[in-house]
């Protein structure tokens, strides 16, 4: 396996070689999946993924270790990935294809996973929301955000949350738009967008079942 990796990266140049894979794929991906499952089933809880960080080079440094870990855990040749312009780079594409075999798509409506940052989030992007009969066929957004903390302004409630849980992903207009989009999920339920937020190695998830309210508006 290591031999193979060495050979391929030599051919493709040094750029994608810096993108780390999982040292022990079966056990590492299990451990990461359980953390992601925990994050999705208890929305807004923060967890830190122990994964090697992607290279600290623009534009891909914004992705962060946690979201790279999610990609390595969940993507394979059966999944289609959409990449926002501000994250897109040949090394990322190469690393994604090399480590997971995932297909990269230009059509957000066709994507199982979308990689973006709070800055590149556009509420108008036509991601798949699933249908009323198959609501599971929707895009899962993997979003790099400004920060992740259990603090206001956002108050989450619903399945997975005993009473309420506060979540702060940042002050940027993009972060606000992301949370506004999540708040709008209730109106279209069971269709909707599920989001996994990453900030460095930290991760939190907010699925479509969560009610998100802003303290500032109230």
């Amino acid at each position: 396996m290591t031999m193979e990796k060495g050979t391929v990266t030599q051919h493709r140049g040094a750029s994608s070689a810096a993108w780390p894979g999982l040292a022990d794929p079966a056990h590492d991906s299990q451990r990461l999946f359980r953390q992601i499952l925990g994050a999705m089933s208890e929305p807004g809880t923060l967890t830190t993924l122990a994964v090697p960080a992607p290279p600290q080079a623009a534009p891909s440094d914004a992705l962060g270790a946690a979201l790279w870990g999610v990609i390595l855990t969940l993507c394979d040749l059966e999944t289609r990935v959409w990449i926002a312009a501000d994250l897109d780079s040949p090394p990322l594409r190469e690393a994604l294809t090399f480590h997971t075999g995932a297909r990269i798509t230009d059509d957000p409506a066709n994507a199982d996973f979308a990689l973006l940052t709070h800055e590149s989030f556009d509420p108008q992007t036509p991601f798949a929301l699933g249908s009323d009969t198959y609501p599971d066929r929707g895009t899962t957004l993997l979003v790099a955000v400004e920060r992740l903390a259990n603090a206001e302004p956002w108050i989450l409630s619903g399945p997975g949350i005993e009473t309420i849980r506060a979540l702060d992903i940042g002050d940027s207009p993009g972060c606000r738009a992301l949370m506004d989009r999540l708040a709008a999920n209730r109106a279209s339920f069971p269709r909707g967008l599920d989001m996994i937020f990453g900030c460095g190695a930290r991760l939190a998830a907010v699925p479509r079942s969560t009610r998100a309210d802003s303290r500032e508006v109230n």
């Binding site: 991906s29 999946f33 992601i36 499952l37 999705m40 089933s41 855990t73 969940l74 993507c75 394979d76 059966e78 999944t79 199982d112 609501p135 599971d136 929707g138 899962t140 997975g160 069971p190 599920d194 699925p207 479509r208 079942s209």
Partner: peptide, 13 residues
């Protein structure tokens, strides 16, 4: 991985 992706959607809905 296929089952894990389905589980995340199951938890979300």
């Amino acid at each position: 991985r296929m089952i894990r992706r389905a589980l995340l959607k199951a938890v979300a809905i």
